[in-house]
Design a protein around this nucleic acid. Structure first.
Length: 845
RNA sequence: GCCGGAGUGGCGGAAUUGGUAGACGCAAGGGACUUAAAAUCCCUCGGGUUCACGCUCGUGCCGGUUCGAGUCCGGCCUCCGGCACCA
């Protein structure tokens, strides 16, 4: 390692590029595949290569890097990889807008972003880099697809899908936000298409049950997972249609209200609606309101259903608020005990019959103004009248089963995962359509099905691949006759559902080497934004189980610990006339365009549109990466949002400068001193041991780096106040400096590496061991004893730390101020908390 | 509505198991150095009250448990996040 003399001034940019090059070339970040050390897999969610890294990425990667560097110094063999979620819509949009091929656009972005990432000093093992748009990677998407096809976990169905007319693509349910497209905000329509699905519902129960094992996850994320799976228990039963052989199967979680059903509703897109509805125009009108939550619309079909419990004839409606893809697509309506049914009944003048009342044997209300959805007792319910409704749910359920009217079932909100996309920039779905053989998977040895380059992207219409004749025209793998390829590509969530497994082997190695996977999986610490709390994480959990059942992996849960980091926010500025403003569009609190006063908006997530963006380049260019790192870690604990503040950045920069300058002052004196930490003593040495303890504890406990850094600032303050007089003092000073450098190195790696070159052991600081503290040396000789009277602090006094309870009590009672307060009073009790305080309880205050 | 989470100085935030509330930083004020400024260094910095030693109030609100509550319990209020016509 190059030995350097310290420059007088801290020059962040100079030392940062120097050490980044050194770490890269020395292979320090490489992960061993044959280490005898315990493994630690630290993973940050890989980015979509949109063009530029933003502060949210920086925060994410810095947190991961600190953990990585810390764990390495603790002796772990750490896997810390990075890659690119490289398929996706923006590349295709860029192609449509500017004519750049998605591949070119993507790879150029990757190159640029990789340079940005390296500038913040993250210690990635780039030999394991994953790029999902490369055939070597997506080949395995195709391979998994075929395995799933074989197991019945991938299937095709004709179904209503969410269709965004603007993006001309199908959206997953979770990509629909408030009836609108999550990307472009266009109102989503329902369109019938043939789609490929993954049968995630086959794992619904396991995915739900395993939520209990996710102890290392934030509980709100686990709650969101549970919520999404949405298990509910209820009854499925068939209502015969009067004067017909047809039946309508309904699902309800409230069989206790069965006697209160006054009509039946089916989804307007339910196949039976077309069959039984007389007025097709009216039905079409209702269909056009399907999914509209503003207004309830329905039409009487003209037919009646027979309620099997009491043989009552009740009308059947097609209603827009009944969802086709939950339960059976049909419900029994009990307006007295369900608000939605109540609203519908009021609108269409349907009867409301109460069957549950709050008090046992109470009379029904004469004028319900809303549905009664609480618990209560049954009335007007035949043999079940008088039961508490909770009991009735069970008993009526049993009755329905034993009378063969229906059965008790479990339902999930979770639906199968639609993976078909009518898009170009994704993984081709590896099947062909043959006139003779039907749907045939591509042979495994013929994978990958390469995504062709020669495509024209217009942004509208169906799948772009359908226009590439040498792609679609092929032969049937089974019979050899002419066949057509599938032209849809896969949802990009497929790519990110297993990339963490791919990282376990180096780029050029076999991608699914079981030894490598077993060596590193599961991920010990996963770090990313909470926006992936449902989809990506749920799909990954699903994929892991499929891979397990195929025999590729031997774990259930891919992510042992999850940290969802907070957002990076900044104050927004707004002018009533000119909208959002950049800070340099304001002067003395006024807009520079119109001189109107600037409104300080709320602090919001950084975004280009709100003009409150700070770019990583401007920060690393001005202060250096170490400052950016220290600031973002010091501002708040990792799971909380941080507010970006220029003054806060300056504060972090000041801290690093103070450290540099202080060490520079003593550099000549301490450079050559040999120290034996066990022989050292004094206040500074004690503070150093305390700091090692505090910093280690802060990292180990909850990755609370903000308190770790504050402890390091305290130590620096102590060093700063220290005035060395003799050789022993300089030895203590060197010990403090060495410890501080080691402890700060995960946070400010470049600075510490540079300083370590001067006071360290001649090797990289990241090959050094994390310092250990000596409990005895960390212990104060004297402590400040707080003396309370009736729980209020009345005096403070210094006593020897090892005083026994009796001596502590003595010291407290004999204190001058305490004497004044207690003279003539009766002492009821004295509580001694060793090392902290004494509380004297006086009788009758 | 349901499910999570959080309310502490001017601000970001500290406070292992109940035991000195406000660490550390930012901002602010004062001082030193300087011809001056920047940078740096030193001091002050929750409210009230007092010339001062002090006293007193104070962790969203109300109550409780305890010698002692930011921390535990009960009941509210507010804010943030997620889900929501899921029958």
């Amino acid at each position: 390692m190059e030995v350097t003399l310290l420059d007088e001034k801290y020059n962040a940019l100079k030392i940062e590029s120097k050490w980044q090059k050194f770490w890269q070339e020395s292979g320090l970040n490489k992960t061993a595949s044959d280490s005898s050390n315990a493994k630690f897999y630290c993973l940050e969610m890989f980015p979509y290569p949109s063009g530029k890294i933003h502060m949210g990425h920086i925060r994410n990667y810095v947190i991961g890097d600190v953990i990585t560097r810390y764990k390495r110094m603790r002796g772990y063999n750490v896997l810390h990889p990075m890659g690119w979620d490289a398929f996706g819509l923006p590349a295709e949009n860029a192609a449509i807008n500017s004519g750049t091929h998605p591949s070119k656009w993507t790879f150029e972005n990757i190159e640029y972003m990789k340079a940005q990432i390296n500038k913040i000093g993250c210690s990635y093992d780039w030999d394991r880099e994953v790029t999902t748009c490369s055939p070597e990677y997506y080949k395995w998407n195709q391979w998994f697809f075929i395995q799933m096809l074989k197991r019945g976990l991938a299937y095709k169905k004709n179904s209503f899908v969410n269709w965004c007319s603007h993006c001309a693509t199908v959206l997953a349910n979770e990509q629909v936000i408030d009836t609108r497209c999550w990307r472009c905000d266009t109102v989503v329509e329902q369109k019938e298409l043939e789609q490929w699905f993954f049968k995630i519902t086959a794992y619904a129960e396991e995915l739900l049950a395993a939520c209990d094992t996710l102890n290392g996850w934030p509980q709100h994320v686990v709650a969101m997972q549970r919520n999404w799976i949405g298990k509910s228990r209820g009854v499925e039963m068939s209502f015969p249609i009067d004067g017909s052989d047809l039946k309508i199967k309904i699902f309800t979680t409230r069989p206790d209200t069965l006697f209160g059903a006054t009509f039946v509703c089916v989804a307007p897109i339910h196949p039976i609606a077309d069959i039984i509805t007389d007025d097709k125009d009216a039905l079409n009108d209702v269909k056009s309101f399907y999914g509209n939550e503003e207004e309830k619309r329905g039409v009487f079909t003209g037919k009646y259903a027979i309620n099997p419990i009491n043989n009552e004839k009740i009308p059947i409606y097609a209603a827009n608020f009944v969802l086709m893809d939950y339960g059976t697509g049909a419900i029994m309506s009990v307006p007295a005990h369900d608000q939605r049914d109540f609203d519908f009944a009021k609108k269409y003048g349907l009867p409301v019959r109460e069957v549950i009342v709050r008090e046992k044997d109470a009379a029904p209300s004469t004028d319900l103004t809303e549905a009664y959805e609480d618990e209560g007792y049954l009335i007007n319910s035949g043999q079940f009248t008088g039961l508490h409704n909770k009991t009735a749910i069970e008993q009526i359920g049993q009755h329905i089963e034993s009378a063969s009217m229906g059965r008790v079932v479990t339902n999930y909100k979770l639906r199968d995962w639609g993976i078909s996309r009518q898009r170009y920039w994704g993984t081709p779905i590896p099947v062909v359509y043959c006139k003779n053989c039907g749907v045939v998977p591509v042979k495994e040895e013929d994978l990958p099905v390469i995504l062709p380059d020669n495509v024209t992207l217009k942004g509208m219409g169906g799948s772009p691949l359908s226009g590439v004749s040498d792609f679609i025209n092929t032969t049937c793998p089974t019979c050899g006759s002419a066949a057509r390829r599938e032209t849809d590509t896969m949802d990009t969530f497929v790519d990110s559902s297993w990339y963490f497994v791919r990282y376990c082997s180096e780029k050029d190695a076999a991608p699914l080497d079981k030894n490598n996977i077993d060596l590193f999986m599961p991920v010990d610490q996963y770090i990313g934004g909470v926006e992936h709390a449902v989809l990506h994480l749920l799909y990954s959990r699903f994929f892991s189980r499929v891979l397990r059942d195929i025999g590729i992996v031997s774990f259930d849960e891919p992510f042992k610990n999850l940290l969802t980091q907070g957002m990076v926010c900044k104050e927004t500025l707004k002018c009533n006339e000119h909208g959002w403003l950049f800070p340099d569009e304001t002067q003395n609190g006024n807009c520079i365009h119109c001189k109107n006063p600037v409104v300080r908006g709320r602090t919001e997530k950084m975004s280009k549109s709100k003009k409150n963006l700070v770019t990583p380049d401007e920060i690393t260019g001005r202060y250096g990466a170490d400052t950016a790192r220290v600031f973002s870690l010091f501002a708040a604990p990792p799971e909380k949002d941080i507010e970006w503040s220029t003054q806060g950045v300056e504060g972090a920069y000041r801290f690093l400068n103070r450290f540099w300058n202080l060490l520079y002052t003593y550099a000549d004196k301490i450079k050559t001193i040999n120290i034996n930490p066990e022989k050292l003593s004094g206040k500074l040495v004690r503070k150093t041991h305390q700091t090692i303890k505090k910093v280690t504890g802060s990292i180990e406990r909850d990755y609370h780096f903000n308190t770790a850094i504050s402890a390091l600032m305290e130590l620096l303050n102590e060093i700063s106040a220290f005035k060395p007089a003799d050789t022993a003092d300089y030895a203590s000073l060197k010990f403090a400096f060495k410890s501080l450098t080691l402890l700060l190195s995960p946070f400010a790696p470049h600075l510490c590496e540079e300083l370590w070159a001067l006071i360290g052991d001649g090797r990289s600081i990241f090959l050094a061991q994390w310092p250990a503290f000596d409990e005895i040396a960390a212990k104060e000789e004297e402590i400040e004893l707080v003396v309370q009277i009736n729980g209020k602090v009345r005096a403070k006094t210094m006593i020897a730390a090892d005083s026994d309870d009796k001596a502590v009590k003595e010291a407290a009672l004999s204190h001058e101020k305490i004497q004044d307060s207690i003279t003539g009073k009766k002492i009821k009790q004295v509580h001694v908390i060793r090392g902290r305080l004494v509380n004297i309880v006086l009788d009758n205050v």
